[in-house]
Every structure is written in structure tokens, then in C-alpha cells.
Design a protein around this nucleic acid. Structure first.
Lengths: 220, 220
DNA sequence: CGCCGCCTGTCAACCGGTTGACACCCGATT
DNA sequence: AATCGGGTGTCAACCGGTTGACAGGCGGCG
């Protein structure tokens, strides 16, 4: 990376693609691939090569011009850009099925986001072990966050509690929240929120399905 | 709805907002609200009023001009557009934590997507009851899909199995797939896929968090 | 009855993101 | 050494989506 422009200039759409680049590149790395051209990489991700180059262009040169990208250099560069060059501990608030699923499913540790605290208000869940992590009482929320230096929280509590929990998180020094509750959270501008609305996905799909079934899609 | 244009002409971005409109409107309906202006509705969703009107404009007139929207008419109209005017039965493939979470969490029934079949290859999960639904063996996949008339499937199996399961689903007549596996699925053009990549969300957030912590965001 | 405030439908300008084109660079090969 | 194939960096045109502006409709009130 030669000249790194200010992050604020990177378009939203590009940011969302970075994780996919990293994911694929790690895969290639694990397969022992050393070089990869923009065309190869783009095709495997089903996007245009010009777009990929354009995206990388925001961060300066990843390769000597005229030569393909070197996987070994790209991976750490992307990790630095995304902010996972060193592990980012996260907390999961709400140990219901979704919370548990996230702790297991996306195996967060490998992705660079080790889970360092799982919390729930339900006394019946508190004490339960998930992946070697005890489910903690909400009382200890602030303490654990500051002790572990947690910056990112994942919210998987029922919608009615989401805002109250959020307020506590913000006070405790959390800087980023992934919100799975179907509510819009109010936070100061210094906190980033990403809403992950599961229901929207299936509804958008339903629209397209209707479209297909009615032969109303332009695809004849 | 007077003149309904072809669905294919509705921009992607608008489609993704429709579910949010519906969600909010249902809420208002439950509160007994009868009329709502574009400004009120837009503000509560944190978008511009002009955009909301523009979105609705794709589907013709929802109100007599000069008068606010009538919640009672908007809700069924949106339901028809999205395709949930009558329940859309869905199947969940993969009864791990994520599959279970989805069956419970987003209470699909209320959203118009009653779960009519939960499947898993793991014999230890088969037979388990989830919300009154038995977890079924994969063998019965095709039968249940055709008997229940299921059109939409939710994929929550581990990535290595995703494509194989998808092929079976397509053959069985599934038209839409919500894919939670971190893999790109290959499907015929007559099948709609929506990828729901949980890991991308947290990484995009991490980028912004880094941004905030380094004071590199334009917001001073 | 006429005016006024509020509302929607509609359009045109604007903006960000995507895409194609091309200049330039490199290593291999003849 | 010159050439050739394949690669990246970069830019400008293009396109879809967003936003602001405004014409016209409706009901309430003086």
C-alpha cells in the first residue's frame, strides 16, 4: 500500500466487497496459490474485473504493475484495511438461538473476531457453556467490556430490549454494533451500527419469486 | 393500485425497502393509526419522503392525491406486491443453531412465511421438535416440498453441502433460496437466490470502527 | 364561496457506482 | 534485442438511484 486515502472516501459498496475479497484470497492462500490476476479473482466472485481493480485502486498499489496480484501480500493488506490484522474481540448480547448460532456458525475466531463475552438476562441461560464461554449475567456487561477491551458488540436480544441494551453498550465504550433486532437504534455519531434484518431478506426474495412464477421478470 | 408496471422495472433498492414499509405500516395499523403522510412514514424509517413517494409511484396510486395514505389500504397492497398476501410456506434445510434460530426468532408465521418443514442430515437432530415441527430426515425432502407446495427454502447447512442440497432443491421445484452458507450457489436462471452472509456484516462494521477509532471518517 | 394549508404524483437534475477502454509495464520467448 | 501475451493503474462515459422542486388535488375554515 503506497498512498492510503482517507477511509471516508471509500464508497460503501466497495467496503461491502472487501470482506468477500479477503475470504476468497484466504481460501486461495490455503490452497497454496501465490499469484492471482484480477480476472481470475473477479470471475470466481462473479463480478467484473474492472470493478475489482477499481476497488483496489482506492488503497494504492497492491502489485507492481504488469504483474498479477500476490496473494501473500494482498491478504495482510486487506486485513489491515478491514481492521482485522489483529483479533477484534466481540461480545454477543442475547444468548438465544441466534446468539448461539453466531458464536458457533460463522466460527468467529477464524474470521478474526473471537467471542469474549456472551450475555443474557434470562437466569436460566446464565452459566450455560457455549464453546467454552460461559453465558454471563447482564450485570457484568460493563466490567467485561472494559476488561477485555471489547469494541464491537453483536445484538441478538428481542426488539423491545434493544434500545436499552444499546444505551448501556454505548456508555460502556462500544464503538460498533451489529444489530439483529428488527428496530432502528439511536446512537451517537461516534458509534457505527449495522442492521442485519433477517426478515427483509426473505421478503425481498418473495418478491422475486412472485415475479418468476408470474413470468413477470423480463426473463420472458 | 391502478397501473402495476412489470416487476422487472422496479429497482433492486426499492424492493429492499418494501419490507420495511410493510413492517412499519403493520405496526401503525396495530396502533390503530388510519392515515399516514409520506413525511411521517419516511421520517420514522429514516429516509427521505420524496424517496418513499417515488418508491410507491412504481406501483401506481395508493391514495387519492391530496390526501394522506390510508394504512388500511396500503398494508394489503404491499402484501400483494411482496407476495405475502397469502402465506408462503417455507422449508428450512439445516436444523443447527441458525436454522432453529430462524424458525423461532423472526417468528416467520407472523411475517407470512410459516415453516412447513425442517430438515437435517444429522440423525441425532432428526425427530427433535422445534415449535411443534419435527426435524425431518433429508430423505423426505422432495416429498414434503411437493406435498406442502413449498416454493421457498432457507439454507442453513455447512458450506461444503450447500451446492449439493441446492441441486436437490431446484429439482424438487423450489423457486427461491435464502442462502446462509458462505458459498455462491449455482442455480438456473429461473431460481432466485439471496445470499445472507453473516460474516460480511461484521467485517464491514469493523472497517467503520477502525475508521472511527482513527478519526479518519470525515466526521472529524 | 374562496382561500389556505397540507398532501400526493411526477419530473428533471444530480450523484455515486459500475463498466469499458486504453496506456503502460513486465517477463518469456524467439 | 525485439516482440508478444498478459497484466495492472487510470480515466471517462454511462447508468441506476436519490433528491429537490413543483404542479395540482383535497378538505377545513373564515
Amino acid at each position: 500500500m503506497r498512498k492510503l486515502r482517507r477511509h471516508s472516501e471509500v464508497p460503501e459498496a466497495t467496503i461491502h466487497r472487501l470482506p468477500r475479497y479477503l475470504e476468497k484470497l484466504k481460501l486461495l492462500q490455503a490452497m497454496g496459490v501465490e499469484d492471482v490476476s484480477s480476472r481470475q479473482l473477479a470471475e470466481s466472485l462473479d463480478i467484473k474485473a474492472s470493478q475489482l481493480r477499481h476497488d483496489f485502486h482506492y488503497f494504492g498499489g497492491f502489485s507492481r504493475p504488469g504483474r498479477p496480484y500476490q496473494v501473500g501480500k494482498l491478504v495482510p493488506a486487506l486485513e489491515t484495511i478491514i481492521g482485522v490484522s489483529e483479533p477484534q474481540p466481540v461480545a454477543i448480547i442475547g444468548a438465544g438461538h441466534l446468539g448461539q448460532a453466531l458464536a458457533n456458525y460463522a466460527n468467529m475466531d477464524v474470521q478474526g473476531f473471537p467471542v469474549r463475552g456472551v450475555f443474557d438476562a434470562n437466569p436460566r441461560l446464565v452459566g450455560l457453556e457455549i464453546r467454552g464461554q460461559p453465558v454471563r449475567d447482564m450485570d457484568s456487561l460493563e466490567d467485561v467490556i472494559s476488561q477485555e477491551g471489547i469494541r464491537i458488540a453483536i445484538l441478538t436480544v428481542p426488539a423491545p430490549f434493544a434500545q436499552a441494551v444499546t444505551d448501556r453498550l454505548v456508555k460502556a465504550g462500544i464503538v460498533g454494533i451489529v444489530n439483529f433486532a428488527p428496530t432502528d437504534l439511536k446512537v451517537p455519531k461516534t458509534v457505527a451500527v449495522r442492521n442485519e434484518r433477517l426478515a427483509v431478506g426473505i421478503m425481498a426474495l418473495s418478491f422475486k419469486v412472485k415475479c418468476i412464477l408470474e413470468g413477470d421478470c423480463g426473463v420472458e
